[in-house]
């Protein structure tokens, strides 16, 4: 009787199993790498209708974030500025700049400036700015160094694990709002005592202010 299969076919089942392991490894590595916000959302920097630069306004001019995002301490939603906010200065500075035509138009007619939203949480997540900002969580924790960005890009993944990492250990991030230099809008501030100093300050704040970020599902999924 002639041989139907060559001798090497004996090793085939083993080789196949081995290959499946390798393939599984590659596939899960790929999903881990690509199927989260870290790939999908981080770095998203849409083209805005006005080439507005945070690097110039917030960084170089040193305008406080709250001058424009004026409701961030009062409401859950951090508003984008009205056209009048821009016109406070731009009726006198660069008043005829073609780059600002959309803003002037909006100020005159009341039609909105079509800014494109960058940071987004899904609608089944409850997020609130004022609870974070008034408890001493700086913008930089969730938005990165906005004051160095010419065009805003999403810097942090804003996934559930990102939120929970901080909610489980808020002391590594909290600022003491009684000190003006630690204001949440001073993005560059780091504790002069390094990580240890930050930790000690944070532990004290958590105790004194009874800070208890929610870790149960209903805290964020209401």
């Amino acid at each position: 009787m002639s041989k139907l299969f060559p001798k090497s076919a004996n090793r085939l089942p083993l080789q196949l199993v081995l290959y499946l392991f390798v393939l599984g490894g590659i596939a899960s590595a790929g999903i881990n790498y690509y199927a989260t916000n870290k790939w999908a959302n981080v770095g998203y920097a849409p083209v805005q209708p006005v080439p507005y630069s945070h690097q110039l306004h917030a960084g170089q001019l040193g305008i406080d974030c709250r001058y424009c995002h004026s409701n961030v301490e009062k409401s859950g939603f951090a508003n984008l500025p009205t056209a009048q906010t821009c016109m406070n200065c731009h009726s006198l500075v660069k008043a005829d700049s073609p780059l600002l035509a959309v803003v002037r138009e909006s100020y005159a007619t009341g039609a909105p400036v079509p800014w494109v939203q960058i940071h987004m949480t899904p609608d089944y997540v409850y997020f609130n700015h004022s609870v974070h900002v008034t408890r001493g969580v700086s913008c930089v924790e969730c938005h990165g160094a906005i004051d160095t960005m010419d065009v805003v890009a999403q810097a942090k993944p804003l996934t559930m694990s990102f939120c929970l990492d901080c909610h489980r250990a808020p002391e590594e991030h909290l600022r003491d709002l009684t000190k003006p230099e630690q204001a949440v809008t001073k993005l560059g501030w780091v504790h002069p005592g390094g990580e240890a100093g930050q930790h000690d300050q944070g532990v004290k704040l958590v105790q004194d202010l009874k800070i208890m970020p929610p870790q149960s599902c209903s805290g964020c999924h209401r």
Binding site: K38, V42, Y44
Partner: peptide, 13 residues
């Protein structure tokens, strides 16, 4: 790679 800048809206899997 992760975190590269893009002007395209994020892909929602």
């Amino acid at each position: 790679f992760r975190g590269t800048r893009s002007t395209r809206p994020p892909i929602e899997l």
